[in-house]
Amino acid sequence: MLSSMMMEVGLGHYLFVGAAIFIIGMLTVLMRKNVIVILMGIELMLNAVNLTIVSFSHFSNNVNGQILAFFVMTIAAAEAGVGLALAVTVFKKFKDVKISFFEHLRG
């Protein structure tokens, strides 16, 4: 039973890979101090969700899922742009990009 489960790649396999990459992205957000690496963790999480959406779309033969993945990708690119602009602001004021500097960034 196990070997047949190993051989036939189904929806569950892709979901597991998506979950693993999502968890790694979450740990990156939780563990790191550098703002840019935290943004990379967010990108990893969004990408893992995209993998889940596209695998659902593939296994149920539904076109709408791929459109949703396309939208998620665009939003992720926009989010990276704003996040990096904030990182530039923090760096200009404090000469470092630690996440703890964000609380001093009023106004």
Binding site: M5, G10, L11, G12, L15, F16, A19, F56, H58, F59, S60
Partner: peptide, 10 residues
């Protein structure tokens, strides 16, 4: 996802 493994097969 393991429990839903058999729900959607290609």
């Amino acid at each position: 996802s393991l429990m839903s493994m058999g729900l959607m097969t290609e």
